[in-house]
């Protein structure tokens, strides 16, 4: 990476109007008859040394977006820049792995079952030549120490480790190439609650001590609230709202964000589902078919505030929320007084 001139350092990740389409094949000849727009024009940035969360339900496109940042989903259009360099360029000169890494939800599936931790880490270190051959063993020990794994575990195979230890091992492998940006795809979802906290603390330590930036993909709003600096809310392949973490939880401006936050069960018996939480219990409308989204806003069919305006034209563009730096919301009604009042009233206070 070239040293920055007088300007501020580029963000760890800058995504602009990212689109990812997957072909839909049907019929006898398996011809491509349509496109699934998994990610339909998404923009956000991950500033250096920050943790940005990408939240949304299954089908929202959050995982596809995260994978696209590492060239693991086919980018149809738009730009992805990591630490100031284009994704395509990073892939061509094969420096991508040293700039960005990904850690998955299921470390068991992403670790080679026939390799001990030591073999696995040595391999990564040798392939990427991040350290002198003589220093490999020392670096392995250092990596294990960094992720809080005892040195005795180096000789273990993945199946001999607990779920939390495996996730630490996967993080150690990502760290081995000293990337400055890591995409975490639901990395604590499969872990026990008492282990979750340990991994979340590890992520924060890495950010603080090693200047790593993170894109943290999660569906757990409690975890997101705890760990993020900034939150990007996705629905149906689009960004609905993007705001600094405190701001988003304190004053969500998009009806979808509100619905998402209100749905989270709060560990407090006094918050029983009663008059204050009167979402219909019946199934909400399914998210729109990503291969044929309706005109207008993606959330229209489930939105209590939707009007004719929401059902036509393009989906609402993200608009800056006045007097709130870094807060954008893609809703025609985010400034309608009635909607604002409704949102404010029904949001559980932090």
């Amino acid at each position: 990476m070239t040293a920055a001139e007088n300007t501020a350092p580029p963000p760890a990740a800058a995504v602009a109007d990212l689109r990812v389409d997957f072909p839909v094949r049907t019929g006898v000849l398996r011809r491509v008859t349509g496109m699934t727009h998994a990610v339909a024009g998404v923009s956000f940035t991950v500033p250096e040394r920050s943790i940005v969360s990408l939240v949304g339900e299954s089908g929202s496109g959050k995982t596809t977006t995260g994978r696209a940042l590492l060239g693991l989903s086919p980018v149809t259009s738009g730009s992805v820049r990591l630490h100031g360099r284009e994704l395509g360029e990073l892939r061509r000169d094969r420096t991508l792995p040293r700039v960005a890494q990904i850690v998955y939800q299921d470390p068991y599936a992403s670790l080679n079952p026939r390799m001990t931790l030591r073999t696995m880490l040595r391999e990564v270190l040798t392939v990427h030549r991040t350290v002198e051959p003589g220093a490999v063993s020392g670096r392995v020990a250092e990596l294990l120490d960094q992720v809080g794994l005892r040195a005795q575990l180096a000789g273990r195979y993945p199946h001999e480790l607990s779920g939390g230890q495996r996730q630490r091992a996967a993080i150690a492998r990502a760290l081995a190439v000293e990337p400055r940006f890591i995409v975490c795809d639901e990395i604590v979802s499969a872990l026990d609650v008492s282990i979750q906290g340990q991994i979340l603390n590890l992520i924060q330590d890495l950010r603080r001590e090693r200047d790593v930036s993170f894109l943290f993909i999660s569906h757990d709003m409690g975890v997101v609230r705890h760990i993020s600096d900034h939150v990007v809310v996705m629905y149906g392949g689009k960004v609905m709202e993007s705001a600094p973490c405190d701001e988003l939880f304190a004053a969500p401006r998009h009806p979808y964000t509100r619905a998402l936050l209100r749905a989270v069960p709060v560990p407090d018996p006094r918050a029983r589902p009663d008059a204050a939480r009167t979402d219909p219990e019946g199934p909400r409308a399914e998210p729109p078919d990503p291969s044929a989204p309706p005109p207008g806003c993606r959330f229209q069919s489930s939105c209590p505030f939707a009007t004719a305006e929401c059902r036509e034209g393009d989906s609402p563009p993200p608009a800056a929320v006045p007097a709130a730096a870094g807060h954008t919301v893609a809703c025609h009604h985010h400034d309608t007084p009635a909607v604002r009042a409704a949102l404010a009233e029904r949001t559980p206070a932090p």
């Binding site: 026990d192 409690g222 609230r225 932090p350």
Partner: peptide
Amino acid sequence: RALMQSVPRMDRKPGDRLPAIPGLP
């Protein structure tokens, strides 16, 4: 008690670190 404190909650302002339970079950 430890379980209640170590689960990150949406309705609580985050402290810097979670009081995670050390060790394994």
